[in-house]
Write a protein that binds this DNA or RNA. Structure first.
Lengths: 161, 161
DNA sequence: CTTGTGTAGTTGCATTATAAAACCAGATAC
DNA sequence: GTATCTGGTTTTATAATGCAACTACACAAG
């Protein structure tokens, strides 16, 4: 790629998400953060990625307001990476990815963990999408509507999400 | 990257999903497919990606059973790319990505479309995660449990998703 | 106060992925 | 039969990734 096409200015919210967290490592870093990792070294060890890449990814996540830097909670002079609300908001995306694997992976027996609810310890249900009046929706029950007040300078693409 | 680390054999289902559809274009191709694109040229025009990349992506998606090739429905001698059930199963992931943008994007006014339910034309609700006994769950209400019968050859990482 | 160890990076180099543009073969249209 | 469309492949350039080696600072022990 002469320049890895950026979707930052695309009018599709999916493309925008991908621009922010659509690379190989960002989602996994957020996953680790959701499960307690805070320090550079923790991310590096648990994910096994190169340190220079981790540096770049962490900085990008901080820039985007997904992580924030804070003084270390253990009294040392170092810093910690903490999730912001925007970062915690990624949780449903991770659940959706997890459930897709669980349902469609060719070798589901290799999946090591199950997402359970803390109180009862039982597997969670599938993510559900409802209409405002409470009907359960599938993809076929939905459509895309252009926003009434689009300010985008780019022409609307027919119906592409 | 000497070799883009593959998560194909990771025991984390999120990593496995990313391995399958975690690159820049795959999810957008699936998005287009969900909204009706079928032909090579349609994908190429609506997404504006280079044809060589599209070729590689489409082939990978077919290999993974997300798309399948079928004779063109318009009688021509060409082929079409159709979603399989596994491909349609990506829908919740796209919704989760979309809703994350809608909620946290810095410039939500640039988002051009709204996902509505077809019947009433009203915006859908946020994706919801429930426990088996019907309680609405947030990230903090969940935990990861190792599967009882893990066959994975790789050691379990403490609690990393 | 000097040496050692851990943390959090940075730098340099090799390799791979991506992009743009040119090219091409078979099908279709004229 | 010639032009054009469809669905690619090839070529070339550049950006991203990965590994390994190196650096700077903090802290702890001796």
């Amino acid at each position: 790629m002469v320049k890895r096409t950026s979707f930052e200015n695309d009018d599709c919210p999916i493309a925008r998400s991908l621009d922010a967290i659509g690379d190989w490592w960002s989602l996994l870093i957020i996953r680790e953060a959701l499960f307690g990792s805070r320090r550079f070294g923790e991310f590096q060890k648990s994910l096994g990625l190169a340190k220079n890449i981790l540096t770049v990814r962490l900085r990008a996540l901080v820039d985007q307001g997904i992580l924030k830097l804070a003084p270390a909670s253990d009294g040392s002079a170092y810093q910690e990476y903490l999730l912001t609300p925007k970062g915690r908001g990624v949780f449903p995306i991770l659940v959706a990815l997890r459930q897709w694997s669980e349902e469609f992976d060719d070798r589901p027996e290799e999946i090591a963990t199950i997402l359970v609810d803390k109180e009862k310890g039982r597997p969670v249900r599938k993510l559900e999408l409802y209409s405002q009046d409470g009907r359960l929706l599938s993809a076929a029950d939905t459509a895309l509507k252009p926003r009434a007040d689009v300010k985008s300078s780019r022409k609307l693409r027919s119906i592409s999400a």
